[in-house]
Amino acid sequence: MIFAEWKPIAELIEKLKPYKKVLLAGCATCVAECAAGGEKEVETLAPLLRMALQKQGHTVEIVTATLDKQCEWEFVEQLAEQAAEVDAIMSVACGIGVQALAERFDPKPVYPGVNTSALTIREEAGLWAGRCAACGDCVLGETFGYCPIARCAKSLLNGPCGGTRKSGKCEVNEDVDCIWNLIVERAYERGQIESLAEPKRTKNWSNSGHGGPKRVIREDLRQ
């Protein structure tokens, strides 16, 4: 899932202070899974913001709505009526949702309520960990299902850096597995350790952020 976390509340307050009425918009997909921007989080953040604003002497009416998806125009359209009645919008969806609202409801000011930071999996209740860096040239087939781009602190493609702890943890964070240690262990388990010694093809970084803004066209799906 796309992972996001609330921005500092003081930062949100500064953005909302000038307005009389604001829409706080959530998204019931990824940011709900990571407990940052779903309906529950919207209904948690809204009273907090109202209380904080009032405490500072600002009277801002905050109304709320949570869409099934903020990254699809059909769902975004559901906010049209509410958006027309407010002075500004604060979105707690990922950066895609924020931009969708900013584009659809221009020139209404749209502010992000969260920082979008990673593509994660929920390892257990209350613990999320990065699993994908959207690098655009997946190597999971050669690394036994472990991503060295997202899960190695140095994004190394050619084995451990030498800083692996005796416990098998990363030198950067003792709570995090050295992913190359896991790759090597799994390679041994499968009797394929030699495959890691083979020269790696040059990774094509141009298919992600390094190649400029992403734009994909599928003619069979276009209208």
């Binding site: 529950k40 209904e43 948690t44 009273p47 907090l48 109202r50 209380m51």
Partner: peptide, 11 residues
């Protein structure tokens, strides 16, 4: 007990 309930009571 849900977090929003408590905050709304205080609000």
């Amino acid at each position: 007990l849900e977090v929003p309930y408590i905050l709304k009571i205080l609000e």
